[in-house]
Write a protein that binds this DNA or RNA. Sequence first.
DNA 1: GTTAAGATATGAGAATTATCATATATTCTT
DNA 2: AAGAATATATGATAATTCTCATATCTTAAC
Lengths: 230, 230
Amino acid sequence: MNGHGDCQTCRSFLKSAFCSEKASTIANVLSGHLLSISFKKGQDIYKEGTLGKGVFCIQKGKIKIYKICEGRNLVTDLATDGDLIGYANIMNEGVCINSAKCIEDSQICFIPEKAFKILLESKSALIADLLKRSCRETAQLSTIITALKCMNTEGRIACALTTIEKKFGVDKAGCLDVNLTRKDISEISGTTTESAIRILNSFKKDQSIAFQNNRIKIIDKNKLKLYLSN
Amino acid sequence: MNGHGDCQTCRSFLKSAFCSEKASTIANVLSGHLLSISFKKGQDIYKEGTLGKGVFCIQKGKIKIYKICEGRNLVTDLATDGDLIGYANIMNEGVCINSAKCIEDSQICFIPEKAFKILLESKSALIADLLKRSCRETAQLSTIITALKCMNTEGRIACALTTIEKKFGVDKAGCLDVNLTRKDISEISGTTTESAIRILNSFKKDQSIAFQNNRIKIIDKNKLKLYLSN
DNA sequence: GTTAAGATATGAGAATTATCATATATTCTT
DNA sequence: AAGAATATATGATAATTCTCATATCTTAAC
């Protein structure tokens, strides 16, 4: 973790909060805390079960949020530029309910719990924004639950691919703009590495997707969608 | 739905909200809306995919929140006296992300979306309370996701029993204070009715639980816990 | 009280997916 | 460049749980 440039994403995110009656206090607490920190690919941001020290705003990067069970990881969310992560930990007695790890090198802004709580207490626009985010997350988690029980592994992998595309977009070559291993993809779709490999290869044979320089390119969305219905 | 007595639970829940600067407006909008409505066992409160008309506060009753997949239901939450349900629907473009149904006859207070939104905008204590609830829900949903992938069916049923006990408590006889069918229990634990029946019977043989007048009594919590680890 | 509907019970077989084993390919380190 | 570590690939087998079939029991309806 090395201090780096000012986190503009984070500042704009919190801007409205500064307009409240307690502004001076908040500014005080936050001053010097909005610098972004460099995280390396693979580095943990926070770990399930540990005490959450604050909230993180992604200035630039790609993050996976996951639950650990019996040595295996289960990704419940992906985060990227502008996303705020870790606030649910702060709201749930401070113990981290999941883990966050960098999929790529990232610049992340840290907001200490104390500062964050003062922001919340100031009843600014932040809390309304947060509620919206939290409710969206609720909807997403329910969808994952449904997928785990009602889709077969093929369907969940097809689903994961479209989720990844939505979250991280595509590069100039049209590939999913993130370097994920088969293991990563298995964690996102709730299966094993072997199954992910097998099914991705079957998708490739099927010409639904292609592999280009270690990245995945979605060739035929309609074909992929056919797997979703199962 | 027949109008009934005043919803005290709901009033106390919203009380703080009335202390804000927009109080008169809120009181105006809410006046006449805080009466509780009678729902029969089995009756739907709202349905996944339909437009959410507002938020519901349980005055007295027992509710299941569930997702539908291929004719099967998957319970994601249980609600009872004092719980607020449906707010995530309102926050997510209004389309219900899940369904709510009465497990027993219930008295429920309805807060129309419009009134609810005005309450939120007044930046009262309500929104902070709601955020906390939402984050707690997030934590719970992640736990369900973990359970579905990392526990076997026995473990999930054992888990469901302790969840039910925590939520609904026990009656004078020491039984889980709610009338659930095996199908209900299978929906809470994410399995089939047949599997739920088989496993509950094995728990009974095991003397972890007992059946009394169609209700389940947890006899040996430690024995049940042994199933959780798998 | 009879019938119908729903709930509980149990067995046999099928299907899906994980596990384990092993091989090859790729990337990283020094 | 060599070796180690990690990632990808593929087959065989095992385990879990669902599905389907059927039977009994309980509750509700008329």
